[in-house]
């Protein structure tokens, strides 16, 4: 398979990259972290191409799409790159929110639209959007992040039927906290890192959902239960998130 992964250096992107390289697939890995990309390339240069791009910059995304359009078609595209901004809403700079909304929402929409509409996907292929469990709960203390992930979930469901007519599957995943440095930086004080899902485990569940051509994935039992609770008691769950997240955040972090 030909595969594209954004945010490939760390977390879920990295775990997917390593699993898929082990299975012998060809990957184009995209990230902002140049050293991380070079390290990946050193490991498996035979199957891997790397492109360094800052996906918070609209023009860079447009240029990336032009580059990708010249290559082979993709069987799997994982639009995984994303960032967070936590703390009191008004205390993070506006520019941090602009960047967040570009990389988490605008970039995956622009890339998916251009790649599917521009005939860059193989028939039978899959595009994976990464939303968040916050879609079910709300996320006081990271309201712009919550916005970005709700937007991408609704975009995915809006284009799903049109993509199905071209035999392209749209999978949206709604992961809770993942065991990464990024999650640790944004976690509330006293949060138990051991309860976060390991990126390898999540990658395994995502690839299963891809092969089963699922539409939505709430990975793991806790995420599934949270989703049900969020549908039954949305206001209660957002209040609970205020207690366990917002009230324990001590400073703006972006």
């Amino acid at each position: 398979m030909n595969i594209l992964i954004t945010g490939a250096v760390a977390g879920l992107g990295r775990a997917l990259c390593e699993k898929l390289l082990d299975e012998g697939h060809n990957i184009i890995a995209i990230d902002i972290n140049k050293d991380g990309l070079e390290e990946l390339k050193k490991q498996r240069g035979d199957l891997l191409d790397v492109i360094q791009v800052d996906l918070t910059i609209s023009d860079a995304v447009s240029r990336l799409i032009e580059t990708l359009a010249k290559g082979t078609r993709f069987d799997l595209v994982v639009l995984n790159a994303g960032i967070n901004a936590t703390g009191n809403f008004e205390e993070n700079p506006g520019e941090a929110y602009r960047r967040l909304l570009t990389i988490n929402t605008e970039t995956p929409i622009i890339m998916a639209s251009a790649m599917i509409g521009g005939n860059m996907m193989e028939t039978g292929g899959t595009v994976v959007f990464v939303s968040s469990l916050s879609h079910a709960t709300g996320y006081p203390g990271a309201s712009v992040y919550a916005a970005s992930k709700d937007a991408i979930a609704t975009y995915a469901s809006s284009i799903r039927r049109a993509c199905a007519r071209m035999n392209i599957n749209i999978l949206t995943i709604f992961p809770g906290p993942i065991k990464t440095d990024h999650a640790a930086r944004h976690a509330p004080k006293g949060a138990d890192a051991e309860r976060r899902m390991a990126p390898n485990r999540l990658a395994f569940l995502v690839l299963n959902a891809v092969s089963q051509r699922k539409h939505d994935l709430y990975p793991g039992v806790i995420a599934k239960l949270t989703n049900v609770a969020g549908r039954l008691l949305p206001a209660f769950l957002t209040r609970l998130m205020r207690r366990i997240v917002f009230e324990k955040l001590d400073k703006p972090t972006y």
Binding site: S143, T154, M241
Partner: peptide, 21 residues
């Protein structure tokens, strides 16, 4: 209206979390 719907979903999620905050 895929991107329009997405923008309004984002606004919905933003309001939901900020209302609690």
């Amino acid at each position: 209206f895929a991107s329009y719907a997405a923008s309004k979903a984002g606004l919905h999620g933003f309001a939901r979390s900020l209302r609690e905050e």
